[in-house]
Simulated scan of single mutants.
Amino acid sequence: MEGSEVVRAWVDGWVVSRGAAPPVVEPWGYTIDVGLAKHPSRHVFGVTDAGALEGDVRKVAASVTGADVWLKVFDAPGRVAAWLGPEWWLDPEDGFLMTVPLARSAAEGVAVPEGYRLRTWTRGGVIRAMVTTGDGSWAARGQIAPTGRTAVADQIETSPDHRRRGLGSLVMRTLSTAAFEQGAEVGVLAGTVEGRALYESLGWRVESLLTSARRKGPDES
């Protein structure tokens, strides 16, 4: 898939996963109404790496005056930071746009560790997986939104008290297999530095760096 195709796949799956409004296509990418108090909307640039133009980023950033509106640019933070003014908070951690071929075999041979329980369900086109302890306490979770040929994995989390026990792999393999069984062929996600090692161990590869920025509120310096 070309970089712009991966971005569009991520946008389409993300809005389903989060229950956001359908994306509005812009000359430079997409505008998405999210509808949260601390995340009313976001602007996502539709190209990766050198395709992100400084002039476009500066123009869109300058047009934003509302607090907590986000920008997503698929390029290195060190490059994008110079294009944004002091009114923008820049996430200090790199993000990564990643993909993987999906296969039914992803979950083969993966057992639920002793002392844990796995539950999956689908609601509103989103497949969810949750791992709990024997007493029902939350240990790990994640979700994936198939949208045709691609499926976006989202909100993959493991409790700090339950890490390094294979629960993240269990969730990812379960979701990937479920999406494949619904016809998806390629998985897409936007990951963090912390999650990258897990995803790469499962065959995911980095397609592009991701810069995230948020318009500061009036009380922020």
Rank of each mutant, 00 (worst) to 15 (best):
V193Y: 08
V57T: 06
I127N: 01
A139G: 05
W14F: 11
H39M: 10
A9F: 02
F180E: 09
R18G: 09
V206S: 06
D219W: 14
G191C: 11
A9Q: 08
T122F: 07
W88M: 08
P23S: 08
T99L: 02
E54F: 09
V25K: 14
R18P: 02
K59D: 15
A20P: 02
A76T: 10
W83L: 03
A197C: 08
R123G: 11
A111M: 12
D56K: 06
V6D: 00
G78H: 09
M172A: 09
F74D: 00
P146A: 10
G203L: 07
G136W: 06
A106S: 13
A67Q: 13
F180Q: 05
D94C: 12
R141D: 12
L118T: 03
K72W: 04
L84A: 03
E194M: 13
M1A: 14
V25T: 14
M98H: 03
A178F: 00
V25S: 13
A184P: 02
Y199V: 02
W121N: 09
S159K: 05
P160Q: 10
G46A: 09
P160V: 09
P113D: 05
R123T: 12
I156R: 01
R79Y: 07
E200M: 10
Y199N: 00
S41L: 11
L198P: 01
D49F: 06
T177N: 06
V73G: 01
G19D: 11
W83M: 05
V206M: 08
T122A: 14
L175T: 03
E200W: 05
D91C: 12
V16C: 07
G134R: 13
V73C: 07
E26P: 01
G29L: 04
D12V: 04
